[in-house]
């Protein structure tokens, strides 16, 4: 029996190890379990059995309202935002060939935050549907500036990361400045803005958030998975990739566009949640090896799991307070980052 599963037709070709398929299935189950638990826990606890019955519409109870209009959208947003950030991070790490980067560290998430804040402050009359677009534009502007400043006879990963970190600080400062100098900053709005910049999925709703983010995810995920094989080639180095017939620069630009768009879309709803884009790809590579065909879907599932659990802790650890989930992703993420730095202490 072959160890590999191949899906191939005229449009695309895709190959996974059986082990990867198993991991994906396990993670799907884990995600479903986490969703049920997350929906059940909170200031009012609902048992998992009842949660499932309510979700399938076979139980009519007063909790239905809580689940359907409060907890479900939040859980779904956690899944979408977490996986989008994770996939964006996986793509970015592949593109710059540095395992220590992620959209939030090099300022792409910061650009998306800035785009969102500009949208909230100056385009409040425009439909909220365009908020992800504004965030994505912000993310692209940031990515473009970072790339431009890092460009000097080509872009080295080192310069890209260094410049990105500096730009991240500047973009954050500009965002604060906009919030503070805007004509309407009652402190409540400003606290919300701060919470947003740390990353929180508090109080999301179906119409405003879920349906706004969904189209982006639905379009970008399949593209990311289909383009994963180009990353595999690029990992070999630009010369090898060119000589085996890959148009490196074009493919790299497309991959970068997908990565930036995913980060932007996620940030527009969830705020600049830290470290998921950094952690998830590493865990994924540990589980299924370095081939991006497996890394990308697995990263996505891990990212969603991490955000589900972080948000759960953020929601119930300090009841009745709701802490931004970004606080907890940072609390797990930073030690993880230190471990990575230690592992990669001798170059790559």
């Amino acid at each position: 029996m072959s160890k590999l599963v191949t899906i191939r037709n005229r449009m695309f070709s895709f190959q996974l190890e059986r082990r990867t398929v198993m991991v994906i299935l396990m993670l799907l189950l884990a995600n479903l379990a986490a969703i049920v638990v997350c929906v059940g826990l909170g200031s009012k606890t609902i048992s998992p059995a009842n949660v499932i019955r309510i979700l399938f519409g076979t139980l009519d109870s007063p909790d239905t309202m809580i689940i359907e209009s409060l907890r479900m959208p939040r859980v779904i947003i956690a899944v979408m935002v977490g996986s989008a950030l994770a996939v964006s991070g996986a793509l970015l790490q592949g593109i710059v060939r540095n395992p220590l980067t992620s959209p939030d560290i090099i300022g792409i998430s910061g650009g998306a935050s800035l785009g969102t804040v500009i949208f909230i402050l100056y385009f409040s009359h425009v439909s909220i549907r365009y908020m992800p677009l504004s965030a994505i534009l912000g993310a692209f502007a940031a990515a473009f500036l970072i790339y431009l400043f890092a460009y000097r006879k080509g872009v080295t990963p080192l310069r890209l990361v260094l410049i990105g970190i500096g730009m991240a600080t500047a973009i954050t400062a500009v965002t604060y400045m906009l919030i503070l100098t805007s004509s309407f900053t009652p402190t409540a709005v400003a606290v919300k803005a701060f919470t947003f910049m740390t990353g929180s999925i508090y109080g999301v709703s179906w119409v405003r958030d879920v349906y706004t983010l969904l189209p982006w995810i639905v379009v970008l995920f399949p593209v990311a998975i289909l383009y994963a094989r180009h990353l595999n080639v690029q990992e070999l180095g630009d010369e090898v990739a060119t000589s085996v017939g890959s148009s490196v620069q074009i493919k790299r630009t497309i991959l970068l566009v997908i990565s930036v768009a995913l980060a932007g879309a996620a940030v527009s709803i969830g705020g600049a949640i830290n470290f998921i884009g950094l952690m998830a790809p590493h865990i994924a590579r540990k589980l299924v090896g370095p081939s991006y065909g497996g890394v990308i879907p697995v990263s996505g599932l891990i990212g969603s799991l991490v955000l589900l659990l972080s948000d759960l802790v953020a929601r119930i650890a300090f009841l009745p307070l709701d802490i931004p989930a970004g606080v907890f992703t940072a609390a797990i993420g930073a030690p993880f980052f230190i471990y990575l730095l230690y592992r990669h202490r001798n170059g790559s």
Binding site: I105, F194, T198, P324, V327, T329, A330, A331, G333, I338
Partner: peptide, 12 residues
């Protein structure tokens, strides 16, 4: 990384 870590925790 440590800046992100400490500022997130401070906010929390």
């Amino acid at each position: 990384a440590l800046t992100a870590f400490f500022s997130s925790l401070s906010l929390g």
